[in-house]
């Protein structure tokens, strides 16, 4: 059975997307416009990430899809099924077994290797957007490296909340040049972006692709007297006991009961496995 071309998109479209990806890799952090296609899913569900994954996948790849760290949520399952059906590739939930990982809003806890590609789903690729509504103006600001405005946002945070309250989509500067929106990953994940895997970012509705080659320098913006802090909840995981993974707060009953659990389900279950084997 295969009524679909490999990975849904036609070959010319994949070529077009690959060209954008290569350009993005050549200019780390620069938003490359591309002719985003309509995908059989609504905007906001990862149409950009899906197109980048489709252009990246080969028949030999093993795909993992996560949504907020979890492998078993609607978005992750539907995208995984989509590629199983249209590309017939192997899928996995184990981070280290995957060659292509599409993610929504998290970086896996397990370190990635230079054999892997991490594809992000990006809702709004322009870090300056909420401060400067004009697209010609933001492009000019990127071109001329006028990034003072980004600090105005952080200034506002401190003046309002006493600390930099931006906790996700925390702006970064790439290789000392482009300011980039890391997609809405928690700022806890920001330091992990200097990694050995290739990182690709796809924004379908906004028609932009950008990329980080392996070992690219990624610096989170901050003030001298209010330095960047990769924060997480001051708890350990209820299920696996991990102290250093990013935690989700889960409400468990109607009386205010709550627990903290790893947002990375694969990491959490592997930690639980290790504990079980040790007992």
């Amino acid at each position: 059975m295969n009524e679909y071309n490999f990975a849904y998109l036609d070959e010319q479209t994949k070529r077009m997307i690959r060209r954008a990806i290569l350009k993005g890799l050549a200019i780390p952090g620069y938003q490359v416009p591309f002719a985003s296609r309509e995908m059989p899913m609504p905007y906001g569900w990862g149409t950009g990430g899906v197109q980048v994954s489709a252009a990246t996948l080969t028949p030999k790849d093993t795909l993992k899809v996560i949504d907020q760290g979890a492998d078993d949520t609607t978005n992750a399952i539907s995208i995984r099924k989509f590629f199983q059906k249209t590309a017939n590739v192997e899928v996995t939930e184990v981070t280290k077994d995957a060659t292509v990982i599409q993610t929504r809003h998290r970086i896996p806890e397990t370190d990635l290797s230079d054999e892997q590609i991490l594809v992000y789903q990006v809702p709004i690729p322009e870090p300056l957007r909420f401060l400067e509504p004009s697209e010609p103006e933001t492009r000019k600001m990127h071109a001329l490296e006028e990034y003072g405005l980004m600090h105005v946002k952080l200034y506002e945070d401190i003046s309002k909340h006493g600390a930099i309250a931006t906790s996700y989509a925390y702006p970064v500067k790439v290789e000392g040049r482009y300011v980039m929106d890391p997609s809405p990953i928690p700022k806890f994940d920001n330091p992990k972006m200097e990694m050995s895997a290739i990182q690709l970012f796809g924004a379908g509705r906004e028609q932009r692709i950008y990329a980080l080659p392996p070992y690219t320098k990624v610096v989170s913006l901050d003030f001298e007297d209010y330095p960047f802090e990769a924060s997480k909840a001051e708890h350990s995981c209820e299920l696996c006991g991990s102290h250093d993974s990013y935690l989700d707060e889960v409400i468990v009953d109607d009386t205010g009961g709550r627990i903290f659990v790893c947002s990375d389900t694969d990491y959490c279950s592997s930690q639980q496995q290790i504990i079980k084997e040790a007992v």
């Binding site: 003072g148 405005l149 105005v152 200034y155 003030f223 001298e224 007297d225 209010y226």
Partner: peptide, 10 residues
């Protein structure tokens, strides 16, 4: 304007 010309101390 201060931040635009490089001030980075809140």
């Amino acid at each position: 304007r201060l931040m635009a010309v490089g001030a980075r101390h809140y």
